[in-house]
């Protein structure tokens, strides 16, 4: 079954083409890394996947729901971790998560149970009562990932979630999210850092608004480290 399907997406800002005929499918429960240098079109693709804006051409299906025809059903299946931090720093972790739960129509005991279990999954339950401002960068990110899981989405999108974190926090978060995929959540993880991609991951390489290649990371890397392969691919004129 397909977790996330992107077909023939093209998007322009005036004369500049941000995405040109982008297509890929991610099977349910797979971890797919969307690798691309800065400016490749990753953030535009995320804005289209989250319906912050709408693509005039192409089709997006989230867990079988068409985003254009049935946006609310599709968005209900989607968990999102934005590149920018979106926690309200004056509120506690739990208050932040409760606000989000309510946006998804969850309140009362059900919301509390779900918030507890998703904080538990990210080892964040002991910090539930701390103000977001007092958390370090890695813990803030984990709180945001926990928040994105409250409504048990089938597909989780993460837009460069490790920006600004130290190596240990990066490794911890990358590990956490890979485990979520093993539990059956479809993951799309945008990054420009090859060390966040594991050999068995699905990989889509985006460059100059187009999909340069896609497949299993280890097969794309071939006989050289993925980092070198990626640099070689993106250095060549597209």
């Amino acid at each position: 079954m397909t977790g996330l399907s992107v077909k023939d997406i093209t998007y322009r800002y005036g004369a500049k083409t941000a995405l040109d005929g982008v297509s890929f499918d991610i099977p349910q429960g797979a971890f797919c890394a969307l690798l691309g240098p800065n400016g490749a079109g990753k953030s535009t693709l995320f804005s289209l996947l989250t319906r912050l804006f709408v693509a005039p051409v192409g089709q997006i299906d989230i867990a079988g729901h068409n985003l254009a025809r049935d946006p609310r059903a599709a968005l209900a299946k989607l968990g999102i971790v934005f590149q920018q931090p979106t926690l309200d720093l004056d509120l506690s972790v739990r208050q932040n998560l409760s606000y989000f739960a309510a946006l998804h129509g969850l309140s009362g005991r059900e919301a509390r149970t779900r918030i507890d279990s998703s904080l538990e999954r990210l080892d964040m339950l002991p910090r539930a009562h701390e103000k977001a401002r007092s958390l370090n960068g890695g813990h803030r990110r984990r709180a945001e990932i926990a928040r994105a899981l409250i409504h048990t989405p089938s597909v989780l999108l993460l837009d460069e979630p490790t920006v600004g974190l130290d190596a240990a926090a990066r490794a911890a978060i990358t590990g956490h999210v890979h485990r979520l995929a093993q539990d059956g959540t479809t993951i799309l993880w945008a990054t420009h850092l090859t060390d966040e991609v594991w050999p068995g991951d699905q990989l889509v390489v985006l460059h100059h608004a187009k999909v340069l290649t896609q497949g299993i990371a280890s097969q794309i890397a071939g006989d050289m480290p993925l980092r070198d392969r990626f640099l070689a691919m993106t250095a060549a004129p597209a």
Partner: peptide, 14 residues
């Protein structure tokens, strides 16, 4: 600018 508007606008409500 801070991103929390995105959180609001991606909620599954009109």
């Amino acid at each position: 600018e801070m991103g929390s508007m995105k959180l609001l606008l991606t909620a599954p409500l009109p």
